[in-house]
Nucleic acid binder design. Sequence first.
DNA 1: TTATTCAGTTGCGAATTACTACTTAAATGC
DNA 2: GCATTTAAGTAGTAATTCGCAACTGAATAA
Lengths: 163, 163
Amino acid sequence: MDGKLREPLRELASCSLPAALEAMGERWSFMILRAAFNGLHHFEEFQSELGIARNILANRLGRLVDHGILTRTAMPADRRKIHYQLTDKGSALLPTMLALRQWGERWETGFPASPVLVDARDMRPIGPIDVRAHDGRVLTKHDLLWALPEHVDYGEAELRAAE
Amino acid sequence: MDGKLREPLRELASCSLPAALEAMGERWSFMILRAAFNGLHHFEEFQSELGIARNILANRLGRLVDHGILTRTAMPADRRKIHYQLTDKGSALLPTMLALRQWGERWETGFPASPVLVDARDMRPIGPIDVRAHDGRVLTKHDLLWALPEHVDYGEAELRAAE
DNA sequence: TTATTCAGTTGCGAATTACTACTTAAATGC
DNA sequence: GCATTTAAGTAGTAATTCGCAACTGAATAA
């Protein structure tokens, strides 16, 4: 990796990773997100499932709502009950969550986690979350390079659009 | 997503996500990892680049070393200098880091981050980090299902191996 | 009307984080 | 050889966050 993955200059400032971490970097955020992906919707469900302190849970849910990752609506049938639902923005974190989970399976626990996420069409497990080229080829770290925008080829379509 | 991505039973306990978060869930871990991916190797480099407090940086680097994500070696040329290097385990976090970064670009900052990670072969940016089926088809949340191990089809090769 | 449930909030001690200054050991300059 | 600089941390302390338990308030159930 070293020598291939090398940064041309100090451009670390303009990266979206800090912004992403501001929304998702706190201690329980990913666990709450996973519970939401698994179909939990209510405060008490999250609380009993995760064993998280109530004030922390309230704080995290509020923060996720503020960041547009969850919506918060009182249920019509029972207006005490608050329904937390993933937004499109929240759902878009699925690849991140799965990549982290797959890494944990491979390098930490050493065995596949349950439940397994499968393709509903054939009930086969999803493939590994990989880095791929624009055409879908899987790339390894040796195929990769950090480049400044002016050295990047954005492809014909985008170039024509810019003309 | 709701109704498709539904968990059959309470199996949240046996998931590798908590294990992954134990290694990488702390406040500065992903930023340090990103700096390492971008070619930084020394304490003072991380410190001045990230602006992190020195004791926290020392603690995080030590933790990442303990978890086998970085190695720590004194350089032969100048034995004051400690060389921090990503291990294979640490490099394996690249898809996770990129997925999070791409999410931040799309949903938080709204513009592509610099530097750009490109395929060295053609200098085109990498594609989006997606969830894919075993055969490489991109899957959306509507194609996915959480399943218990006994309902999963692990494919012919694995089944033959188990006979 | 009284009890129970849901979704929080409050108070408080413990743990973690951040800021600044100090240390230690190796290399460099003179 | 001796003083200086540099790299990589420690130490002390203030601020913040975390976690537990008990409490509140509104809505529903008995």
